[in-house]
Amino acid sequence: MADIISIETGAGPAGRLSAGRLRFCVFIAIAAFMIAGPAAEQVFGVQSPWLRSWTMFSAIGLGVIDASFEIRQPDGALVPLDRFAMLDAPRNGKLKWIQNPEELASVIKRLCTAAGQGSDIRVRARLATRDGWQIIHTDAENACAD
């Protein structure tokens, strides 16, 4: 490699040759640092604020809950339940985002209270994790019976 660098960095005097070699060494060192940062975290699992991992949006959205609600009608049919209408809450307010399982439990409790005693509310919910969606509530049972 040294002779390649010598060829490429000019046939000038010895001092210029050294500058070219130095520049190439610095180039390789900087490039190696650029690669080492993300490789350390993504390949070897080493986390450090000193190294940039370039993991984009890997944490955004984690913990958010996708939830849907249904309520059983007197004729036995399950119909979608609008939690905003049931709780008389604004659609762009705090209720729009259910951010953790505890908050989901609280919403279910409020819906059951609002629907009245003996109501049958089914809840399907899943939690966003780094490995994908994780089901945290199924509609197999009446959520108000808990």
Binding site: F57, G61, W97, A128, W133
Partner: peptide, 14 residues
């Protein structure tokens, strides 16, 4: 992950 990001910023839990 894109679904979760979309829910986080836009759709909420619906």
């Amino acid at each position: 992950r894109i679904e979760a990001i979309f829910l986080w910023y836009y759709a909420g839990s619906d």
